[in-house]
Amino acid sequence: DNLPFDANYLPECLEVYSGDADDANIFVLNGVLKDYVPVHTEKNTSSITVMIDGEFAYIEVEGRQVLNKLGGIVLPEVAINPELLIQSIIKGENND
C-alpha cells in the first residue's frame, strides 16, 4: 500500500540482502560503502531484498518481483574504501 519513493529521492541508507542472510550483503550509509559480504557464486540466490532508509523498497523471490517501490529514487554514487573492501572479501572467504 505504500507509495513509491518521490522523484529524485536520495537515500541515506541502502541495504541489500541476498537469500536468507540475516545481515546485509551490501550496506551503504550516506554514499559510503560501510560493509560488503560477497555472495557465494556457486550458490543460487532465491531472493533479493533492498531496504531504503529502513523501508522495504524492492523484493524479488525466485525471479519474480514481489515489491518494487523504488519509484524515482536516485541511487547514490558510492565511495569505496579499498581497505574496507579487501577486509570484507577476506572475511567472507574465511566464513566458507
Results as ranks from 00 to 15, higher is better:
55 E>G: 02
87 Q>S: 14
22 D>L: 11
87 Q>W: 08
21 A>H: 10
22 D>Y: 08
12 E>G: 00
57 A>F: 02
30 N>L: 07
31 G>D: 00
40 H>Y: 11
32 V>E: 15
94 N>I: 01
75 L>G: 00
33 L>V: 02
15 E>C: 06
52 I>C: 11
61 V>T: 11
8 N>M: 14
5 F>P: 00
1 D>M: 15
76 P>V: 09
25 N>C: 08
84 L>A: 13
96 D>E: 13
36 Y>K: 09
81 N>D: 14
32 V>C: 05
11 P>K: 02
36 Y>G: 05
10 L>H: 05
12 E>D: 15
44 N>Y: 05
15 E>S: 13
32 V>P: 03
10 L>W: 01
14 L>T: 11
71 G>R: 06
81 N>G: 01
73 I>Q: 00
94 N>P: 01
9 Y>M: 00
56 F>R: 11
41 T>F: 11
64 R>D: 06
86 I>K: 15
36 Y>M: 07
6 D>L: 11
1 D>W: 10
2 N>M: 15
41 T>H: 15
32 V>D: 15
95 N>A: 11
75 L>T: 01
59 I>P: 07
79 A>W: 09
71 G>E: 01
47 S>C: 10
64 R>F: 06
8 N>H: 08
63 G>R: 14
88 S>L: 07
65 Q>V: 15
13 C>I: 14
1 D>G: 14
27 F>S: 14
82 P>F: 02
24 A>E: 03
46 S>G: 12
67 L>T: 05
80 I>F: 00
83 E>K: 13
56 F>W: 14
10 L>N: 06
62 E>A: 12
29 L>Y: 09
32 V>F: 06
9 Y>H: 02
8 N>V: 07
16 V>A: 10
58 Y>D: 03
